[in-house]
Design a protein around this nucleic acid. Structure first.
Length: 579
RNA sequence: GCGCCCGUAGCUCAGAUGGAUAGAGUGUUGGUUUCCGAAGCCAAAGGUCACUGGUUCGACUCCAGUCGGGCGCACCA
C-alpha cells in the first residue's frame, strides 16, 4: 500500500516550487488551490499567475506558461491547461481519488481530523443559562452549537474544555428561592401572595411540593406580615420583589439558604440531565459564587483599581470601559455595596486565563452583543490580550408549528422547553436542525418538518445513506477489515469519482468549520456525501459476480459509511444501521 | 438617534482566503422499482444575489451610502 498524498498540499507544493523556479520571487503571494464549479475547468485550479501579473507587470497567461513549464512531474496529475484570464487548470488521474479509500479504511474514526489547533488549549463556555427554570428552545440552539463546535475543534487539534457557567450568586436565584418558598406557603394553607413577576412555572410548585412532603410545615410562616406593605409597591413590582426577598431572608433566617440551595440543586440537576439526554456534556460546571468565595472578584477589582481603571461616582464604582471602545463606563460595585454581574464576569474571564487556556470561546445569545466591548475592555485593562477571547453569537430560534410562530417567555411560564422539543422531534432531528443554519443567522425551526418521518426531512436523508450501506455490507456478510486491501483501480465511473471527490473534500470542510467556528458546514457536507452515495447506489450494483470490482465498491461504501459516521458523531447525531 | 447582525429561486437557506456560466432542499411539472431498502434516483421550470456608487484583470463576497428587517443601548443577568 502506497502512502496517501494530500491533493491540495501536494498541488500547492508543486506550484510553489514551479513559481520559484520560473519567475523567482513569490513574497506575499500565497499559492491558492481552488475547486472550480465547472467540471471543464479541471479538478483543481490555481490563480497564482493572475496574482503575480500585477507585481511583475507581466501577461498572466504568459506567466502561467512559464510556471507550467517548471512544474515537476506528479503521479496524480493527468494534464494541465491554461484557461480564461490566466487560470491554471489541473486534471487528475482517477488514482488521485482512489487512493482515499484505503486511507479512510486505515484511519477510520480519525479520518477528517486536522492539526489546525496545534495542540493549543481552548475553553468553550456555552449554555450557561440561569438555573432558575427548565432550558427552553433558545438554550437548545446554544447547546447544540457549542457541543458541535467543541467537537469540531477537538477534531482540529485543539485541547478542548467544555464549561457551563452557573449563575448561582445573583438576584435571579433569590427570586427563585423566594418563589419556591411562596409556593410552599400555599401548600401550608396560607393565602397566596404570589406576585406576577416571580417564577410562574409549574416546576416551582413541584419543588414546593417536594419540600412540603419532606418537611411538612417546618418552614411555614403567616403571610400576613408580608402583605402589610404590599400596596406601597403597587407601581414598583421589582421593588416589591426585593422587599419580599429581604423579608424571606429575615423571616427564614438560617433556613433561607436551604430554600436557595434546594432550588439551585434541583434546577441544576434538571438542566444537567436534560443536556445529557441531548448528548451535551460539560467538563466543568463553574460556580459564580465560587468567584466571591475564593476572593477573585475582590482581587480583580484591586488590579483594576491599581491600574487606575476605576473611579467613584454617585456612590458607585465605575470601570472606565470607554477607554476601550465601549459606549459608556460601567458600574462594577453598586451604591448599595453589592457587586454587579459584570464584576464577577471580569473575574471569571481573568480566572479562565489564569487557568492557562490559550484561547477562550464564549457562546452568547445575540441579544448580549452590546456586552462584548466591556468584557474585552476589562481584559485589556488588566494587561491581558483581548484577542484571546472570541465571542460567538447565536441568534434566536423561532419555532413554527402549522406555519405559525410559537412564542415563549420564561417568566410567564408559557415557554416551549428543550425537553418538550426533544420529546416531539427527537434528539437527532433537534441537533441537526439547530446546526443546519449559520449560528449568527436567525433560525426558523419547523417542528412539523423536523418530526416528519418522510423524505422531506433532511436528517433522515443522511441517516438513510448510512443505513443503506450497513444493509449492503450485512448482506455481503464479509469482514470489512479485509476491504482495506481491495484493489480500487477500477473505481472510475462518474458516480464513483463524484463520491470520492466528496469524501476527499471532507477534511477541508472540518478545517473550515473550525476556522470559521461554523459546524453547519459539516451538516452541508454530509448532505452532499449522502446525495453522492444515493446516486451511486442507484447507478451501480455492489453485490456482483466480479469479485475484484465487488470488493472495490464495497470498500468505497465502507469508507463512505465511516465518513458519514464521523460527521454525524461530530454533530451529536446517531448513525443508525437500520431505520 | 447610536452600535452590532442580516437582505441570494415561490418558501427555508448554503455559497471556506474575491475567480470563470449562481447552489441545495422544499414546492410545481414529468419520468423512474422482475435487481443490494423508492425515507431513493433522473430531468424540467424557477434569479436585476435589496438598491446605488466605489476599489480591480475579476465582486454575492471588500468599502461607502440608501432602503428594509432583527437585536442591543441598566447601579438586570
Amino acid at each position: 500500500m502506497t502512502t496517501y498524498i494530500d491533493i491540495e498540499n501536494h498541488l500547492s507544493a508543486l506550484l510553489g516550487y514551479a513559481v520559484r523556479e520560473s519567475v523567482g520571487q513569490t513574497d506575499g503571494i500565497s499559492i491558492e488551490i481552488e475547486r472550480p464549479r465547472e467540471a471543464s475547468h479541471g479538478d483543481y485550479a490555481c490563480n497564482v499567475a493572475m496574482k503575480l501579473a500585477r507585481a511583475l507587470r507581466a501577461n498572466p497567461r504568459q506567466l502561467a506558461q512559464q510556471i507550467l513549464a517548471a512544474l515537476p512531474a506528479s503521479p496524480l496529475i493527468a494534464r494541465t491547461e491554461i484557461a480564461g484570464a490566466g487560470f491554471i487548470n489541473i486534471f487528475l488521474h482517477a488514482a488521485a481519488w482512489q487512493q482515499l479509500v484505503p486511507h479512510i479504511l486505515g484511519l477510520t474514526s480519525t479520518f477528517g481530523h486536522n492539526t489546525l489547533g496545534q495542540n493549543r488549549s481552548v475553553l468553550v463556555e456555552f449554555v450557561s443559562a440561569n438555573p432558575t427554570g427548565p432550558l427552553h428552545v433558545g438554550h437548545g440552539r446554544g447547546a447544540a452549537y457549542g457541543a458541535s463546535l467543541a467537537n469540531v475543534l477537538a477534531a482540529s487539534g485543539y485541547r478542548v474544555s467544555r464549561e457551563y457557567y452557573v449563575n448561582d450568586a445573583g438576584r435571579q436565584m433569590d427570586i427563585l428561592a423566594l418563589s419556591t418558598w411562596l409556593r410552599y406557603l400555599e401548600q401550608c394553607g396560607e393565602p397566596s401572595i404570589f406576585p406576577g413577576n416571580a417564577y410562574q412555572g409549574d416546576y416551582v410548585r413541584h419543588m414546593a411540593n417536594a419540600i412540603f412532603n419532606q418537611h411538612g410545615d417546618r418552614y411555614c410562616h403567616p403571610t400576613a406580615a408580608l402583605t402589610a406593605q404590599a400596596p406601597a409597591f403597587a407601581d414598583e413590582p421589582d421593588a416589591h420583589l426585593d422587599y419580599l426577598i429581604s423579608e424571606a431572608k429575615r423571616i427564614l433566617a438560617n433556613d433561607y439558604p436551604y430554600f436557595h440551595a434546594f432550588a439551585l440543586n434541583e434546577q441544576l440537576a434538571d438542566c444537567r440531565n436534560d443536556l445529557n439526554e441531548f448528548g451535551v456534556v460539560f467538563d466543568e460546571w463553574f460556580s459564580e459564587q465560587s468567584l466571591y468565595d475564593s476572593g477573585i472578584v475582590q482581587r480583580t477589582l484591586d488590579v483594576l483599581e491599581a491600574n487606575g481603571q476605576l473611579y467613584e461616582q454617585d456612590g458607585a464604582r465605575w470601570f472606565r470601559s470607554t477607554r476601550y471602545g465601549d459606549e459608556k463606563d460601567r458600574v462594577v460595585q453598586r451604591e448599595n455595596g453589592l457587586f454587579t454581574y459584570f464584576a464577577s464576569d471580569i473575574a471569571y474571564h481573568l480566572n479562565k486565563l489564569e487557568r492557562g487556556f490559550d484561547e477562550l470561546i464564549d457562546i452568547w445569545g445575540a441579544d448580549h452583543h452590546g456586552y462584548i466591548p466591556r468584557v474585552k475592555g476589562a481584559l485589556e485593562a488588566m494587561g491581558r490580550n483581548p484577542d484571546q477571547l472570541i465571542i460567538a453569537l447565536v441568534q434566536f430560534a423561532v419555532l413554527y408549528r402549522n406555519g405559525q410562530k410559537a412564542a415563549m417567555s420564561t417568566r410567564s411560564g408559557e415557554f416551549v422547553t428543550l425537553r418538550e422539543l426533544r420529546a416531539e422531534v427527537g434528539n437527532d432531528a433537534a441537533r441537526f436542525f439547530y446546526v443546519l443554519r449559520k449560528s449568527d443567522q436567525h433560525l426558523d425551526f419547523d417542528l412539523d418538518l423536523a418530526k416528519s418521518r418522510s423524505n422531506e426531512n433532511p436528517v433522515y436523508y443522511i441517516q438513510y445513506a448510512h443505513a443503506r450501506i450497513c444493509r449492503v455490507l450485512t448482506q455481503w456478510g464479509g469482514d470489512t477489515q479485509t476491504l482495506a486491501d481491495a484493489d480500487v483501480t477500477r473505481l472510475d465511473s462518474p458516480s464513483e469519482i463524484d463520491l470520492l471527490r466528496q469524501l476527499t473534500n471532507y477534511p477541508a470542510v472540518v478545517a473550515a468549520a473550525a476556522r470559521e467556528l461554523s459546524p453547519h458546514l459539516i451538516a452541508y457536507a454530509l448532505k452532499d456525501i449522502a446525495a453522492a452515495l444515493h446516486t451511486y447506489y442507484n447507478a451501480e450494483q455492489f453485490l456482483i459476480e466480479d469479485i475484484v470490482l465487488r470488493h472495490a465498491r464495497l470498500a468505497l461504501i465502507s469508507a463512505t459509511r465511516i465518513v458519514l459516521n464521523n460527521g454525524l458523531t461530530m454533530l451529536g447525531i446517531s448513525s443508525p444501521e437500520q431505520m
